[in-house]
Write a protein that binds this DNA or RNA. Structure first.
Length: 267
DNA sequence: AACGGAACCTGAAAGC
DNA sequence: TGCTTTCAGGTTCCGT
């Protein structure tokens, strides 16, 4: 379930598991997660015996530096990295690394039910990584640069926000919430937003990211048993009253993605 | 260059 | 209860 906040959370987790470790075995549970033409044997050859370095994130991509090249991981919709206890089986396991670090050997597993993620090893940065636009956490969101991008887009603003070359890491939830915080209707042609609205949108997106990350930290601090409650302001709340103006929240499809918004206070 | 729509894949939830 | 349909927080490809 990854947008930028969750991928950043994954990055921090992996940063506590991997750097300095050596991969002493690799097991590919499902080769379909590999790029076309890449074999499990080739993956093992590239990884086994090599040392893991920094874990970095740009947008929704993770880059794990190796002593030669890097491992690139994208979680798609359902990907996650786990470190199981003992020999516990991991549901939907796709690739498993056996990592020895500080004298301890652990299994680090990439699992992905829907197979929409990516697992790639390369000697240089892959195109998907280099094509990414600025990352909101590392670079902030510069309203002027965003305005330049939006000026040549005639389609609705919301799908444009999901374009990873415009901003890296914005997903359906962050786009939905950011537009709400900015009072901007997701159907508005991107090029029609005023400079003031773009500024509000930049702040709204950053606010959405910050709130989601704070929520994640809270979930770790206080065990959340009820797991089903929706932590978002309007995402997933169609049909209920807008928390700002009390109009009923609508849901439409834009660019093939469900989009919740308020016709009362998003213009 | 950029747009809308379909495709990729499969589990979980909702509908009947 | 059990079968069917719908939906899912992502990306990529294809035709226009």
């Amino acid at each position: 379930m990854p947008e930028l906040p969750e991928v950043e959370h994954t990055r921090r987790t992996l940063a506590g598991w991997l750097p300095g470790g050596v991969i002493d075995a690799v097991r590919v549970h499902d080769p379909r997660i590999l790029d076309p033409g890449v074999t499990p044997a080739a993956v093992a050859r590239h990884l086994v015996g090599h040392r893991l370095g920094r874990v970095e994130r740009k947008g929704k991509w993770l880059r794990i530096t190796l002593d030669r090249g890097a491992l690139f991981s994208h979680l798609g919709m359902t990907g996650r990295w786990v470190r199981p206890a003992g020999d516990d089986e991991v549901r939907f396991a796709k690739v498993e690394l056996q990592v020895t670090r500080r004298g301890a050997t652990r299994r680090v597993v990439y699992a992905d039910a829907r197979l929409l993620g990516r697992f790639a090893i390369a000697d240089r940065d892959i195109a998907a990584w280099t094509a990414l636009g600025p990352d909101p956490l590392h670079d902030g969101i510069d309203p002027d640069a965003l305005a330049v991008r939006l000026a040549r887009r005639s389609g609705p603003i919301k799908p444009v926000l999901l374009d990873q070359a415009v901003l890296a890491g914005i997903g359906n939830i962050q786009a939905t919430e950011g537009l709400f915080f900015a009072h901007v209707d997701p159907r508005r042609p991107a090029r029609d937003l005023s400079r003031r609205e773009i500024g509000a949108l930049a702040r709204g997106l950053l606010r959405s990211i910050a709130e989601t990350m704070a929520q994640q930290d809270a979930d770790l601090t206080y065990v959340n048993e009820s797991g089903s409650d929706n932590p978002f302001t309007i995402y997933g709340r169609e049909g209920t009253a807008c928390p700002r103006c009390r109009a009923t929240l609508s849901k439409i499809v834009l660019g093939g993605r469900g989009t919740v918004f308020c016709t009362g206070c998003q213009r």
